[in-house]
Design a protein around this nucleic acid. Sequence first.
DNA 1: GTCTATAATTAGATAGAC
DNA 2: GTCTATCTAATTATAGAC
Lengths: 208, 208
Amino acid sequence: MSMSTGTKTQRKSHHGNARKESIVHAAVGAFSAHGYDATSTREIAKRAGIEQGLLTYHFPNKQALWFAATDHIFDQLNIHIEGVLTELRELTEKERARQGIQEVVRYLSTHPELFRFLVDAGNRSDEMMHWLVDTHLKPRFDFMINEGVVNIRGLNPAMAGHAFFALAGATSLIFAVAPTCKRLTGIDATQQAAIDNHAEFIANLMVP
Amino acid sequence: MSMSTGTKTQRKSHHGNARKESIVHAAVGAFSAHGYDATSTREIAKRAGIEQGLLTYHFPNKQALWFAATDHIFDQLNIHIEGVLTELRELTEKERARQGIQEVVRYLSTHPELFRFLVDAGNRSDEMMHWLVDTHLKPRFDFMINEGVVNIRGLNPAMAGHAFFALAGATSLIFAVAPTCKRLTGIDATQQAAIDNHAEFIANLMVP
DNA sequence: GTCTATAATTAGATAGAC
DNA sequence: GTCTATCTAATTATAGAC
């Protein structure tokens, strides 16, 4: 069954707006690297190869840039997950959980911005955090409860929230602080071998 | 056996310097809430109840404030862990690992700044990240390899780095984004019941 | 030791030329 | 659409009175 999430939250346009898309891409990179407050609109403009004054033609203000960037990264995630679910449809429940988790680990390894946006906005108590939860996290969380890891481990449903954040943190931290991981352990978390090792480790942890 | 880490990295002074300590405390709170780049020295001064100009009398610049804040939170962690190890000395290896993990989860639940400092500095590639790894993370990581979870699960030593970041992420994320967790799941990660649930969940995950 | 004042830089947003 | 120029406010660091 398809998820209740989809690409319908997408604000960005259909076709022909390459400039706007390049700005969103630049905003994702900058917000991911420095967080919302520490990112300047001038850096976003520089990454997009334009002047700062042009940003306000395409987006009314800095916060609108963040909403568009967040929409984009979660829309891409949802598209990926729907594809994975289709591929794994024929497997047993346990194998689907194991391979689904490994596939998500691999995706998050190349998209550390998802974790960084979550941590950056997750401790705020303002409109940005509320919107992030209601629009993007809630559908993902509800989906995990209905089809995900909880069934497999025979988990008490009251513990689903603990499983969600444990899985998200266990999966993503190593990729979000890859330079630190390299210096601390010698593991280069950007290399495919390390990614596969982490995917297998997390799958063994969650679905033994 | 005691760890190789201790309180010897402590830069802050011995006695009678209450003002300096209150500034460090304020810096921990501010850097934890907003990250290094997005924290203003004026906010730190305000939290400490002093004027901004006074900061440079006690610390030469903003970065020195961050080093002092980081020293402080890791020194406190190390003190706590040494105490826990002493308490658990008589237990079997497996029980010591289980209860040690639960005790660290409880500590991190009330000290989310450790995770936030790690994520905030962890993706930099500058002096701050290098110093954080060499001074504070490396001793903790080496200790975990020698006495920690790796032995218990019969883990391939090459996977120790994966276990370290998986454990750190699984443990800390829920507390670092507590407002998001509350809105998403209804779980108030600041309440003792939720903290104990998470501690037990993580212990079951890592030492089944 | 603590404060006030300020210098030099950078921030987000806006106005207007083309 | 895109750029240049600028406004107001906030930033870190410093100088100097007390």
